[in-house]
Design a protein around this nucleic acid. Structure first.
Length: 263
DNA sequence: ATGGCCAATATGATTGGA
């Protein structure tokens, strides 16, 4: 089973490149972020025609998450628990059945949090605490659980080309990295770091200032795995080449292979 | 990480992104 995450920065602007990438990488399940459209406007047909089931949780203009799955969804639920007043579309969870039982996948679009001296940052930290509470609730189920998405967190200095430039940024502040570590320390595995300590494994390059050309990137798109998922991890990849395509997203897809067969 | 971008909105300017 191959599972991927990709912040597409508008699904409507990325239909052609998403279809080309799906045909090439052939993921079974894809977690999408920043779809930027309401549910009724999501272009389902271009993905259903490739054999994917589509589950969406969108809103007007901003945010928006979705799941594409070759497996039928047994359950889908929208929204991260823990705050009824939070109306941002940033979390969707699906469950599929496999030969190894239920596999639970969440597509996550964690708040950016800038500027850090505002309520945007407290919203980010609160959201991270809610995500940890969610993981604490799910981990005892001992299922393969994959929390994949745009975390807006640079975990360590090895995850930025120019870490000094990020010192005061919401993506890299000590408090942000502490919360990310707290999540990991519940017993989750960062799939990319389970396979490599290399610097330069970036997933995002800003559109501005020639960031791509200078390889001024950061690693902020992550797949975090429960022990039952990590035990079956056989491969990881970052599809960097997608950043060279026409009309690219500023993020590229990241994927994992799990030794989990269809039912 | 800003000189340089991109997307959504009834838009020709503003907001959000990271």
């Amino acid at each position: 089973m191959r599972i991927a995450t990709w912040n597409v920065n508008s699904i409507k602007q990325r239909i052609d490149s998403a279809r080309a990438w799906l045909a090439e990488r052939k993921p079974d399940i894809v977690c999408l972020q920043e779809t930027k459209c309401v549910d009724d406007a999501f272009p389902r047909e271009p993905f259903e025609s490739l054999g994917y089931n589509v589950a969406v949780h969108g809103q007007k203009t901003f945010n928006g998450v979705a799941l594409l799955s070759k497996f039928r969804f047994d359950e889908v639920s929208n929204g991260l628990p823990g705050d009824d007043k939070d109306d941002h579309a940033r979390f969707i969870e699906g469950v599929v059945s496999t030969a190894h039982g239920a596999v639970r996948i969440a597509s996550i679009y964690l708040p950016n949090g800038n500027p850090p001296d505002t309520e945007k940052y407290s919203y980010k930290i609160g959201w991270m605490k809610r995500l940890s509470a969610y993981a604490r609730e799910r981990l005892p189920l001992e299922e393969p659980l994959i929390l994949a998405g745009d975390y807006n967190v640079i975990p360590t200095v090895a995850d930025a080309r120019n870490p000094a430039a990020w010192i005061n940024d919401a993506l890299f502040l000590p408090r942000t990295r502490d919360e990310f570590r707290a999540l990991i320390n519940l017993g989750l595995t960062d799939a990319v770091r389970a396979s490599s300590d290399d610097p330069g494994l970036y997933t995002f390059w800003d559109y501005q200032a020639g960031a791509w050309q200078k390889n001024n990137g950061i690693r902020i798109d992550h797949l975090l795995l429960s022990p039952a998922a990590a035990d079956r991890l056989t491969g990881v990849g970052i599809d960097r080449h997608v950043r060279t395509w026409e009309k690219p997203s500023d993020h590229v897809p990241v994927w994992i292979d799990l030794e989990i067969a269809a039912k």
